[in-house]
Amino acid sequence: MPARPDPSRRDWMRSGLGLLAAGAFGGPAAAMLPAAATLLVPGPAGGPLARIAHPLGEALARGASTAVRLNEMVLGGPDGVTAANRFATEGAPDGRTLLLLPGAAALARLVGDPRARYDAAGSLPVCAVQGTAVVVGRTGFAGAGASPRLGFAAPDMAGAAALLGLDLLGLHASPVIGLAGLAPEAALAQGLAEAVLLTGPDLPARLAAAGAQPWFTLEPAGARDPLLPAVPSVHDYALDGPLALRAALTAAAACARLQAALVLPALTPANLVAAWRSAAQRWVEDETRQGLAPGLRPLAGADAAPLVAALSPPPGATLAYREWLMKRLNWRPD
């Protein structure tokens, strides 16, 4: 057999240009989703997150450019800590494992819950459901110097973010803790509290039923909740306090607003992220057209990215929040 001639410089250049062309034209859109993937869903089966997961999975399958079977695995309770921990230990950046992450799981990590091993930093959102988070009172907002009684379930729950916001506004709010078994608007109606944090679906009806007056939302600075466009964000006021504590408020507020985010592991290749986001666009369109419950809105992956990124503040802000919980509420995780 005659010897094969050594490749010339021109041959190498042709080969290199071919590879460059393949890279240029075979970018994110060229990625193929796996034939099967696992969606980790916080329990219980039939619970609020499972009810989001089922239509989401169906829409992803319809929106994918190739056939995809999404297997739902329901784990743990509604705070999402068990499902998030499984995702942290078993989720590889290969596009085959996704997590439906609730804000409560990120909040557990923020407050230092020893069960919470999953860090949302670097997680890549495919899509999300954001809700309204608004502090309301029995009467209008009195401003600095007032001392309202703020009711919420527990120091490690979303209501503590409202207390921190009031502190940074210069209000001397008195916490009323232990309302876990009572709807916040019921606490207002029964006179147990003068202000509460309302989150979740059906807020227009709940606000009307309670006769409550919105004070401020937990939206980012300069943003307005579409449901309450006339209500300012807490960040629109002049906040007084250390920068780290104000950053902690931003993180706790994001946890309160996030109902659920569909995320991929950090370091998942960009082309796979783009392919999953493209598939999720069908779900975003379906929910925009049909409508989630009032107060909830779907977010595409790029729109959800700032919200998911805000769940993981710098270490100094995390420490500041935990110290504030200890000094203000005499609380620390078990």
Score class of each variant (00 low, 15 high):
residue 126 V to G: 12
residue 18 G to N: 04
residue 116 A to T: 08
residue 329 L to Y: 11
residue 318 T to Y: 00
residue 266 A to L: 13
residue 234 V to G: 01
residue 333 P to K: 05
residue 293 A to P: 00
residue 261 A to F: 08
residue 253 A to H: 02
residue 202 D to F: 00
residue 142 A to L: 08
residue 1 M to E: 13
residue 102 P to W: 05
residue 180 A to V: 13
residue 222 G to R: 07
residue 144 A to E: 10
residue 300 A to C: 09
residue 292 L to F: 06
residue 6 D to W: 09
residue 326 M to E: 14
residue 129 V to I: 15
residue 115 R to I: 00
residue 260 A to H: 02
residue 310 A to H: 06
residue 214 P to N: 07
residue 314 P to M: 00
residue 40 L to P: 03
residue 309 A to G: 12
residue 1 M to P: 10
residue 45 A to R: 11
residue 118 Y to Q: 14
residue 289 R to G: 06
residue 110 L to P: 02
residue 90 E to Q: 15
residue 211 G to L: 04
residue 166 L to V: 00
residue 37 A to R: 07
residue 26 G to R: 12
residue 202 D to T: 00
residue 332 R to Q: 15
residue 248 A to D: 01
residue 152 F to W: 11
residue 288 T to K: 03
residue 329 L to N: 12
residue 301 G to Q: 06
residue 48 P to T: 15
residue 47 G to D: 07
residue 139 T to Y: 12
residue 227 L to T: 14
residue 302 A to L: 15
residue 310 A to K: 07
residue 34 P to K: 12
residue 68 V to W: 01
residue 127 C to R: 01
residue 318 T to G: 04
residue 313 P to F: 00
residue 321 Y to K: 03
residue 16 G to H: 00
residue 293 A to T: 01
residue 47 G to I: 08
residue 57 G to K: 01
residue 249 L to R: 05
residue 11 D to S: 10
residue 67 A to E: 14
residue 145 G to S: 13
residue 10 R to S: 10
residue 52 I to G: 02
residue 38 T to V: 11
residue 2 P to R: 14
residue 24 A to C: 13
residue 70 L to N: 06
residue 19 L to F: 10
residue 329 L to D: 10
residue 87 F to S: 13
residue 70 L to V: 15
residue 104 A to C: 10
residue 331 W to P: 07
residue 51 R to L: 15
residue 120 A to D: 03
residue 60 L to N: 08
residue 42 P to D: 09
residue 323 E to L: 15
residue 102 P to H: 06
residue 308 V to I: 10
residue 129 V to Y: 01
residue 132 T to P: 01
residue 20 L to Q: 05
residue 125 P to R: 11
residue 139 T to S: 15
residue 236 D to E: 09
residue 334 D to L: 15
residue 112 G to C: 06
residue 278 S to W: 04
residue 154 A to C: 06
residue 116 A to H: 04
residue 183 A to N: 07
residue 214 P to M: 04
residue 116 A to Q: 03
residue 280 A to S: 11
residue 50 A to Y: 07
residue 8 S to H: 04
residue 91 G to D: 10
residue 268 T to V: 07
residue 165 G to V: 01
residue 252 A to C: 11
residue 42 P to C: 13
residue 33 L to Y: 05
residue 299 L to V: 10
residue 306 P to R: 11
residue 200 G to K: 07
residue 304 A to S: 02
residue 169 L to F: 07
residue 174 S to G: 11
residue 296 L to T: 01
residue 173 A to K: 04
residue 270 A to S: 12
residue 247 A to S: 14
residue 328 R to F: 07
residue 28 P to H: 11
residue 153 A to W: 05
residue 87 F to K: 13
residue 154 A to V: 00
